[in-house]
Simulated assay, not measured.
Amino acid sequence: MPFFRCSLAATVVATLSLAVPALAQDEEQHSTLTIGAGAAMIPSYEGSDDYRVLPIAQARGKVHDYAFWTRGTSLYVDAIPDPIGPSVNFELGPIVNVRLDRTSRKQIKDEAVQLLGKRDLAVEVGAFVGIGKTGVITSDYDNISARVAVTKDVAGAHGGYVVTPTVEYFTPLSMTTFAGLSLSADYVGKKYGRYYFDITPQESLASGLDVYDRAGRGSGFKRMSANLTAGKSLSGDLRKGWALFGLAGYSRMLGKYADSPIVSDAGSRNQFVGALGIGYTF
Results as ranks from 00 to 15, higher is better:
Leu228Asp: 01
Leu238Asn: 02
Tyr250Val: 05
Ala243Thr: 04
Pro261Thr: 15
His30Gln: 14
Gly277Gln: 03
Val154Phe: 03
Asp210Gln: 13
Ser260Val: 02
Tyr187Glu: 08
Gly38Glu: 00
Val163Asn: 00
Gly277Asp: 02
Ser251Pro: 15
Ile262Tyr: 11
Gly208Pro: 04
Ile80Phe: 02
Ala112Phe: 12
Thr34Val: 14
Tyr51Asn: 04
Phe3Gly: 15
Thr176Cys: 08
Ser174His: 04
Ile35Trp: 06
Ser219Glu: 08
Asp142Gly: 08
Glu203Cys: 09
Thr176Leu: 07
Gln114Lys: 11
Ser204His: 00
Pro81Asp: 09
Ile35Cys: 13
Glu111Arg: 15
Gly218Asp: 09
Asn97Tyr: 07
Leu33Ser: 06
Tyr66Glu: 03
Gly231Ser: 05
Gly180Glu: 05
Gly267Arg: 00
Val163Ile: 09
Arg223Asn: 14
Lys118Gln: 03
Lys240Tyr: 07
Ser74Val: 13
Gly180Trp: 02
Tyr45Ser: 01
Tyr76Glu: 07
Ile278Lys: 02
Leu276Ala: 06
Leu247Thr: 12
Gly189Glu: 10
Leu115Val: 10
Ala122Leu: 04
Ala266Cys: 05
Gly126Met: 03
Ala39Ser: 14
Phe178Glu: 09
Thr176Arg: 12
Ser233Phe: 00
Val188Asp: 01
Ser74Pro: 10
Asp153Tyr: 00
Asp265Ile: 11
Gly218Tyr: 04
Trp242Leu: 13
Leu54Gln: 12
Ser207Trp: 00
Leu183Trp: 01
Phe282Cys: 06
Thr200Tyr: 00
Ala258Lys: 08
Ala157Thr: 02
Leu75Asn: 09
Ala57Pro: 11
Ala112Thr: 13
Ser219Lys: 04
Ala146Pro: 05
Val273Asn: 07
Arg239Tyr: 01
Ala67Arg: 15
Val63Trp: 15
Val150Arg: 07
Gly193Ala: 04
Gly135Glu: 04
Thr166Gln: 15
Val167His: 03
Ala39Cys: 11
Asp78Glu: 04
Ile84Phe: 15
Glu203Gln: 08
Ala59Gly: 05
Gly160Ser: 04
Asn143Phe: 11
Ala79Asp: 06
Ala146Glu: 11
Val188Thr: 10
Arg119Ile: 06
Trp69Phe: 14
Arg52Asn: 05
Thr281Val: 02
Glu28Pro: 09
Leu75Gly: 07
Tyr187Ser: 06
Arg71Met: 13
Ser139Pro: 03
Leu205Pro: 12
